[in-house]
Amino acid sequence: MTVERIEKIFLGLTAAMLLVFLGALFYSAFGMGMHLPDRAGEILPSEVRNTPPFDDPGVREVGDNQYEVVLIGAAWSFTPREIRVPAGAEVTFIATTTDVIHGVHVEGTRVNFMLIPGQIAKVTSTFREPGEHLMICHEYCGAGHHLMYGRVIVE
């Protein structure tokens, strides 16, 4: 077999592999509903705590087995620090920051998103198993960045 032929096969397989991967990703996104954060509105960073829903952060039941978590990040803590939701419920995080960029990662889950000043983040997920997860600020936000964390308790 000539090199050109081997190369063509190699590149064909590469292209096929990439297409299969992309297909799987798009199926997981649009078939299984595993979406990334989208546009969910803007907010004035200095007015976060006076702007609904952020004037009343916390967890609330908004429908049949549906919960909403209103979350604020500020150097260097989350409000609320502890989030309790039932296993199997559909949980929507609505979150923003009052100062610099922060991040939210509920470890062990795919709840992983950025808090960017001026932007509202909205992420929906379901925690299937009961248990406890760290909720870590995973974007550098200043000298106390490593102190910024919370917990998600799935009951």
Partner: peptide, 14 residues
């Protein structure tokens, strides 16, 4: 690098 950012549409990320 901004898949998890708010404020950018899912379509553009895709």
């Amino acid at each position: 690098h901004q898949y998890t950012d708010p404020g950018i549409s899912g379509g553009m990320k895709a």
